[in-house]
């Protein structure tokens, strides 16, 4: 009894928050030191710019800098919403993202299902190696290839079309082709790579389920439907969620590289517009206001996608 008490007393100070804090501090300060470079990165390159968004409420003056420039309130936001280009940009960004989702999302699932049916390991490995590869090619090279292959003078595709008796199409200067070209090139680039997670989920399916299905007389398609697909449903839902949340976050590089003034009607999206307004015309405040707007809308999209999914199924990101 007495020993127990002295033990309690010895322990007591440690359970007081302040004491625990001090002990963790003295034991863990080296860990904190190790974390400092990483923290510094996030503060300087993520949070400092986040506060830099205040220039969207100011009239940015090169000589006064971000903090000293004069306040103008919502002037640039109003300017953006009243701009006739606003709806065009919104439509282009949204449709490009939507088409990418509608056509680009199911593609890797189909490929993964097909790869799962392949019994020959060597062949499977070969297909995987070949289809993962374009993921590592830069956007500049992919855009270069697209432009060269679609060229009206001697481009591979037009050559092929001519030999089939079709007329030459100026793909890259026709707005109606831009979305198709962009989405197809995205699929070409990332289709294989995006199968990895599905293949991992597929390999985790218990083989005895297939045997049981066979005993019940299930055919090949039935097995895919009743065993394989349910096995990857949660992976599909999580990835769908992530992708719906990112509908408006279209990579800047490739759109910038493939678009040109003749196709702006369908190809100009928020980020390329921000680049032109900010970097080319030097209107930083206006461009930052658009940055802020897209950032907030994306955030709303992610939160919405998550809450819908949480209601409908058991899967959610947080």
């Amino acid at each position: 009894m007495a020993m127990q008490q002295s033990e309690l007393q010895a322990r007591a100070p440690a359970s007081v928050p302040y004491g625990r804090f001090r002990r963790r501090w003295s034991r863990g300060k080296l860990l904190l030191v190790m974390f400092v470079p990483c923290l510094l990165y996030y503060v300087l390159f993520k949070y400092y710019p986040m506060f830099g968004i205040v220039i969207s409420f100011k009239n940015y003056n090169l000589y006064k800098g971000v903090w000293e420039s004069d306040w103008v309130g919502f002037k640039y936001y109003a300017m953006f919403f009243q701009n006739p280009d606003f709806w065009l940009l919104f439509r282009n960004t949204f449709l490009l993202g939507l088409y990418k989702l509608v056509f680009g999302f199911p593609a890797p699932i189909l490929l993964a299902l097909m790869l799962h049916e392949v019994r020959n390991r060597l062949f499977k490995r070969f297909v995987q190696t070949a289809t993962y590869m374009p993921h590592f090619i830069s956007n500049v090279i992919v855009a270069s290839m697209v432009v060269m292959f679609l060229s009206p003078t001697g481009g591979l595709i037009n050559q092929l079309m001519n030999s089939l008796g079709l007329e030459t199409v100026h793909f890259l200067t026709r707005p109606e082709w831009f979305r198709t070209i962009y989405v197809l090139s995205e699929i070409w680039q990332h289709l294989g790579w995006e199968t990895i997670i599905y293949l991992a989920a597929l390999s985790a399916i218990d083989p005895s389920l297939y045997e049981a299905a066979e005993m019940d007389g299930a055919g090949r398609l039935r097995k895919v439907w009743s065993v394989t697909l349910p096995g990857i449903t949660s992976a599909i839902v999580i990835l769908l969620l992530l992708n719906v949340g990112k509908v408006l976050e279209i990579g800047f590089e490739k759109v910038y590289l493939l678009a040109n003034p003749t196709t702006y009607e369908t190809a100009d999206i928020f980020s390329t517009y921000v680049y032109r307004v900010g970097m080319t015309n030097g209107n930083f405040s206006y461009a930052a206001a658009i940055d802020m707007f897209t950032g907030v809308v994306s955030l709303v999209f992610i939160v919405m996608a998550n809450s819908i999914s949480r209601k409908v199924s058991d899967n959610s990101l947080w």
Binding site: Y42, P49, G52, G278, M279, A287, T294, G295, V296
Partner: peptide
């Protein structure tokens, strides 16, 4: 930072 970022221009001005 995975959900919200400063965006192109504020990051450019920071750099």
């Amino acid at each position: 930072t995975m959900f919200f970022q400063g965006g192109m221009i504020p990051t450019f001005l920071a750099v």
